[in-house]
């Protein structure tokens, strides 16, 4: 079991309200990602759930039980930290065994569990090493191993992949997702990387300035962003946001079009522009097109075999069914 409920949770540091008030329901077995720019309060929220910080007001329920005043040790949650936070003076074995030892488990049972976890995480050959002798990816696995052995109600991940290089990050992303699916344990995952959020989450919570902007499945957020912030944050490359005449003619203050929803033509279209930088990824090409009257260059995504070069004149047309319209308050219309 592992459902977590936040009821009107607030947090202030000194006089500053970092979390002005959050209500959230996390269901058993769900993979929830908190995503937002740095300083949006996502890590603070996670630490409140972990019990590493006191809430200023509000309640936190774990499995229906009030855990607001409980010390972290009694909340039955495991956490994987950004820096991995492995105990440098202990072997891999002892690191993974530590929470079990703290729980007073019988040594034979501990051995069985640690070896089980090590098997799942490909750490069997490294059990005698110290964390200092491991690579970044291996350390990450040890941290995960330490989190899973005690079979917690939920895993908490605090930007666990941000210290890894890009290729490893993609691998670990898959591994964590797969592990979570097979264990079926509720997970809360904090990241600033919207790609991680999109690829891993069952449910994404977009945070900005301590407030929840939108909660939904990855595709919900992609297709139906509730406001400008979510629209700009979810999706890669970023959604083009156009103000002025083009938006006004559609009855909105701001119009959003994703790069994949702009049609490129060399002969005709709604906007005429000049090609700036072209980023060739092979499968696709991202073109940055400078259009008269629109401040930022429009990004469009075209197949990799389209041949255009710097300085060419091109025409762009938005897909009318895939435009997003936002009112003066930034909310979706």
């Amino acid at each position: 079991m592992g459902s977590i409920t936040l009821e009107a949770v607030t947090k202030s540091f000194g006089g500053v309200k970092v979390i002005p008030g959050v209500d959230l329901e996390i269901n058993d077995g769900e993979f929830v990602v908190f995503v937002g720019p740095s300083g949006c309060g996502k890590s603070t929220l996670l630490r409140l759930i972990a019990g590493l910080e006191d809430v200023t007001s509000g309640r936190i329920l774990i499995d229906g039980q009030d855990a607001t005043g409980m010390p972290p040790a009694r909340r039955k949650l495991s956490m994987v930290f950004q820096s991995y936070a492995l105990y440098p003076h202990m072997s891999v074995y002892k690191n993974i065994a530590f929470p079990l030892k703290m729980a007073g488990m019988d040594p034979a049972k501990i051995k069985e569990k640690v070896e089980g976890a090590a098997g799942i995480l490909n750490l069997t050959d490294y059990l005698d090493r110290r964390p200092g002798q491991l690579s970044g990816g291996q350390r990450q696995r040890v941290a995960i191993g330490r989190a899973i052995v005690r079979e917690p109600s939920a895993f908490l991940f605090d930007e666990p992949l941000s210290n890894l290089d890009a290729a490893l990050r993609v691998n670990m992303r898959l591994e964590i997702s797969e592990l979570q699916k097979s264990l079926g344990t509720t997970s809360i995952y904090v990241t600033h990387d919207q790609i991680e959020a999109m690829t891993m989450a069952d449910k994404i919570v977009v945070l900005n300035a301590g407030r929840i902007e939108q909660v939904g499945s990855p595709l919900d957020l992609y297709h139906k962003p509730a406001n400008l912030f979510v629209a700009g944050f979810i999706g890669s490359p970023k959604m083009n946001l156009v103000e002025g005449e083009a938006a006004r003619s559609r009855g909105a203050t701001t119009m959003g079009i994703r790069p994949e929803h702009l049609t490129l033509s060399k002969t005709e279209g709604e906007w005429q522009g000049r090609v700036g930088v072209a980023e060739h990824l092979g499968s696709d090409t991202f073109l940055h097109v400078h259009v008269q009257g629109i401040e930022a260059p429009l990004t469009t995504r075209v197949p990799g075999n389209v041949e255009v070069s710097h300085g060419d004149t091109v025409f762009l047309t938005p897909d009318p069914a895939r435009t997003y319209l936002f009112g003066p308050d930034g909310q979706a219309l």
């Binding site: 019990g51 590493l52 040790a73 930290f81 492995l86 530590f98 703290m102």
Partner: peptide
């Protein structure tokens, strides 16, 4: 000594003494 390590211990169920 990174504070995260002490927090990790706390999450792992260690009391202040441990």
């Amino acid at each position: 000594i990174p504070g995260e390590i002490l927090e990790a211990a706390r999450m792992d169920g260690a009391t202040l003494g441990k």
